[in-house]
Write a protein that binds this DNA or RNA. Structure first.
Length: 581
DNA sequence: GCCGTTTTCGGCCCGACTGTTTTCAGTCG
């Protein structure tokens, strides 16, 4: 992603926020135009700084006015309109907008009536009673605002939690709600279902004709810290961990329309609703219906029904970002995405031979076969990872056990592999001759995360170019929401991988999801191939393969770019081709 | 501010909940 695009996108976002304050309306057309322009720039595959005004204006979502602003920024380093808005609306007003319950209208009212333009000013007005004197400001509203300010940073509008944290809460809560009497269906939706890396709030959906027991059960959950609001069909709470959960209850006949609606994204939904209007229909969370007095329902029960009635194939949630998926669906060009059932092998698995593994080889293999794997790569840490790695002699002994086990079982191909450690200088464990005796080798970065782009790129490319290495594990080393990855020249790394045929891992751990979807997408464009792996250290980890599949789907990877969708014979032939190359 | 295989002007997605209103505005998703 060109640096200019990030900067321009940030400025367009600021323009949207400041315009929202200036116009006093988050739905003002100009605000939405800037938001669309923001997304359009983030979606560019070229450097906006190198594009002419005319080229920019031709991009969908950018027009004459925004194109001129982008050129103005590139040439002068500033945008007059933005400076004007910054002068009229101090920094503190943007903080006010982040307070839950405070919107653009009220922020404008505060400035116009009391001259308040920041959080300390608002707090003072609450404390001395001036706020309560404003029209529309009853005791309850003031009380809610005071509480919201106290919790700011814990539950503010821009706080996001890593997907791993949200997923566990979501799956637990959905399981509880699914067992409430009368519940026909229960699921999570929103950005979690779209498989975004971080989640703003959790959207849960329940189908039932009897909403009250669902609400009662939900509000009684142990995690619930406080209730934001609760009506007949919609209840919002905040958990002790500060995660907001929105629960919606709909009649079973509306579940499909509701899932479309609450899965989003907002931009995807707007496109669908525009598409509905073009067809004389209207789409809401209850149904796709005729846009007339009859309001006759066209589709509502399943998502497939709704998409079909809009002339589209069902679009997988991971792609619903209005990032070209609707155009691709219209043209019948959606990628042939992998599903969990397509996964034939797991090629990154540890046993108790690794210091951090927990299961003996035999039990791990049995669990893998239970999960339908036809081939498996056993990849314990090699010797250079000093804490957990194992010696050459131990590797050779494991290989004998592996061959014997494969013979004895006869129902799975066992590849003897290792997870090599990519040293700070790009060096690998053992020696090239010994490396060549392995069936499969994953090479990964485990240390020295703070080096320069040039150093990191060189060490990873060196590993890619080692002929015996078949895959690069968790490419960036990032931990979602906790640790940034190493800085890489991604294009250079992906080009090297495409050239040598070395697969890039899609690590299925929700904490990693590495390579990131944006990198996978870039790799697909550059002809690289990928392997979805669980990096399991215990049997339970094997079940996260589905998350790796979701990550691949989010990147828009078709099955033929994922090498472990190949059957065993083709997969082994693929390894030979890569190592011969 | 953007957009147009009916449009270059006149549109622009839809509904729930709260708190304050006697019929609705603001916020949120």
């Amino acid at each position: 992603m060109p640096r200019t695009n990030d900067e321009v996108a940030r400025l367009l976002d600021e323009l949207a926020v400041l315009t929202e304050i200036a116009e006093g309306d988050p739905n003002a057309f100009r605000v939405r135009a800037y938001q669309n322009a923001h997304r359009a720039v983030l979606g560019l595959d070229r450097d906006a700084g190198e594009m002419s005004e005319a080229d920019l204006a031709r991009v969908k979502g950018l027009g004459k006015s925004t194109a001129a602003k982008i050129r103005e920024y590139v040439q002068t380093g500033t945008i007059a309109k933005l400076e004007e808005l910054r002068a009229a609306h101090p920094r503190g007003q943007r903080d006010l907008l982040k307070v839950p319950g405070l919107g653009a209208k009220t922020v404008g009212l505060l400035q116009a009536t009391l001259g308040i333009t920041d959080l300390p000013g608002l707090q003072a007005a609450i404390d001395d009673g001036r706020l309560a004197g404003l029209p529309g400001m009853g005791a309850k509203t003031v009380e809610n605002l005071a509480a919201a300010i106290g919790k700011l940073g814990l539950t503010s509008k821009d706080r996001r939690v890593p997907i791993a944290d949200a997923m566990s809460v979501a799956e637990r809560t959905v399981a509880v709600l699914a067992h409430v009497p009368g519940v026909v269906d229960a699921a999570y939706a929103g950005s979690l279902r779209r498989f975004r890396e971080t989640i703003g709030d959790l959207d849960l959906l329940v189908a039932t004709d009897d909403p009250e027991p669902v609400r009662t059960t939900f509000l009684a959950l142990d995690e619930v810290d406080r209730v934001i609001g609760s009506g007949e069909t919609k209840t919002s709470v905040v958990t002790r961990d500060g995660l907001q959960i929105d629960l919606r209850v709909v009649p079973p006949g509306s579940f499909g329309a509701a899932m479309v609606y609450f899965t989003g994204s907002k931009a995807h939904n707007i496109r669908l609703r525009q598409r509905a209007l073009d067809r004389g229909l209207t789409l809401n969370e209850y149904a796709l219906a005729h846009h007339d007095d009859t309001a006759e329902v066209i589709a509502s029960v399943t998502e497939e029904d709704v998409y079909a009635a809009l002339g589209l194939p069902w679009i997988t949630p991971e792609l619903r970002e209005d990032d070209g998926e609707i155009e691709a669906a219209t043209a019948g060009q959606l990628p042939d995405l992998p599903t969990l059932a397509d996964i034939r092998g797991d090629l990154h698995v540890h046993t108790d031979l690794s210091g951090d593994g927990h299961e003996p080889l035999e039990r791990m293999v049995a669990a893998l076969v239970d999960r339908g794997r036809d081939y498996v790569g056993i990849t314990d840490h090699a010797e250079n990872l000093t804490i957990n790695g194992v010696s050459r002699a131990a590797m050779e002994a494991q290989r004998l056990r592996l061959r014997e086990l494969e013979q004895r079982r006869g129902d799975v191909r066992l590849l003897h592999g290792a997870e090599l450690n990519i040293g700070v200088d790009g060096s690998l464990d053992y020696d090239p001759a010994f490396l060549a005796t392995f069936d499969w080798l994953v090479a990964s970065v485990h240390s020295h995360f703070g080096r320069s782009v040039a150093e990191q790129t060189a060490r990873v490319v060196a590993a890619i170019r080692e002929p015996s290495v078949t895959a690069i594990g968790h490419l960036t080393g990032r931990m979602v929401g906790r640790r940034p990855g190493i800085e890489l020249d991604v294009e250079q790394v992906l080009d090297a991988a495409a050239e040598t045929g070395t697969a890039i891992e899609i690590n299925a751990s929700l904490h990693r999801l590495d390579a990131p979807a944006t990198v996978v997408r870039e790799g697909l464009a550059r002809g690289a191939c990928f392997v979805i792996s669980t990096d399991s250290h215990r049997i339970g980890d094997l079940d996260r393969m589905r998350f790796g599949v979701a990550q691949a789907r989010r990147a828009g990877a078709s099955k033929d770019a994922i090498v472990n969708t190949l059957d065993a014979d083709r997969f082994l032939a693929w390894i030979d081709a890569v190592r011969g190359a």
